[in-house]
Nucleic acid binder design. Sequence first.
DNA 1: CCGTTAACTTACCATTGATAAGTTATCTGT
DNA 2: ACAGATAACTTATCAATGGTAAGTTAACGG
Lengths: 220, 220
Amino acid sequence: MNAFSTAATGGRKKRGEGHTRREEILQAAKELFLEQGYEATTIRRIADRVGVSAPALYLYFPDKEQMMLALCDQTFGYLIESIREIESTVSDPRERIRRFGEAYLKFGLAHPDEYKLVFLGSNIPESVRKLGHRMPTDDPTRPGIGGAIVFQRLVSIIAEAEASGLALNYPADTCAELCWMAMHGVASALILKPEFPWSNRDLLGTGMLDIVMKGIIRGG
Amino acid sequence: MNAFSTAATGGRKKRGEGHTRREEILQAAKELFLEQGYEATTIRRIADRVGVSAPALYLYFPDKEQMMLALCDQTFGYLIESIREIESTVSDPRERIRRFGEAYLKFGLAHPDEYKLVFLGSNIPESVRKLGHRMPTDDPTRPGIGGAIVFQRLVSIIAEAEASGLALNYPADTCAELCWMAMHGVASALILKPEFPWSNRDLLGTGMLDIVMKGIIRGG
DNA sequence: CCGTTAACTTACCATTGATAAGTTATCTGT
DNA sequence: ACAGATAACTTATCAATGGTAAGTTAACGG
């Protein structure tokens, strides 16, 4: 057992316990990805932390990329959950949109690495990067679909807002895209350039939300 | 001479002509980076296209990263130039901001790979990604500084607009950050997810610009 | 207690960015 | 003309990477 690991369990797994090894690998991979980034994390280092040989990882994942996707799904579940909660507890259309934006930005800042991986494709292969925004028709059980689900919720929220009488300055889908792009601009900037002397981080979030609401809602 | 290359010149360079080899390397690297991306482009492939051995590249660049930075500087020069032209020919403060946004977005869409490299840090080392936004005090001759210069121009444009009487809803630097973030959100989304069925690409650009102008300018 | 097979290891592969050390061709001073 | 000096370049090699092949060990069912 590796003293520096939170995942290693030491010995060989008993039959039928392979799934616990899989979770140990995910845990170790998550720690290392968050500590050092995707590229810097090698399968050998993950294997070391778990306490197995490198090829053992390939018993549980087809490749490195799928480990990352499994982790993204896990983390994005939290955001999807909090959006569902907003949808089920907040009825005012304006407030829903605002709360979505707040939750989205809060999530991005709380999970910058997962955000980077899904929405910015930082240091990951092309095939992974494309998973952030997928067509609505794509298989919802497919790994890495989290980002697309989040975006789809915003489209629904804004479409429902319009259906319930809110006048928009642009088509509903365009409004959703503008809203997402604006908040994504804030999130990605704060995440990718943490060392930049931003004038006022909180004001950038609330200000952008104000600007977007005013811009997409007629008379907003 | 490699028949598939636009850069290879065949033989050994004469003394004092090393700079032409350097430019050939940059040209070949640019083609390959744009065709296949940064990671997929190996120094061996660059060297093949130029028609020299791989280690020969290290006579002209300390590493692969510096090749990319040199290319980014080259390309960003075009954007900096067009911004300078706007500043020298457009006097109306509102129009200046709008024209900046248009030029910025147009540049991003015309040079998506360089944009990714400087502003999104896609598939490149941490050290390169950080160069997009640098402190104003940084050495302006340093490779990769282009993105920061562009942002600094926007700060100036908005600060001058305020000084000339334009009323802003937020501090000038915050307005610049919001403006940049919003346009960056549009640019990065369209660049990173080109296959997504965006409702209306042109409207997203002009719409976001409208929204931002209205949002940061009092009574705008 | 024996055979099946899940769980895992050792040995290996091609490719990567990069370096060390040697070679060749061109220029300069005499 | 010729002898360094050195710019320009090559061959050989390195350690690290993601991934594979093939064998080994241990746990379970009958």
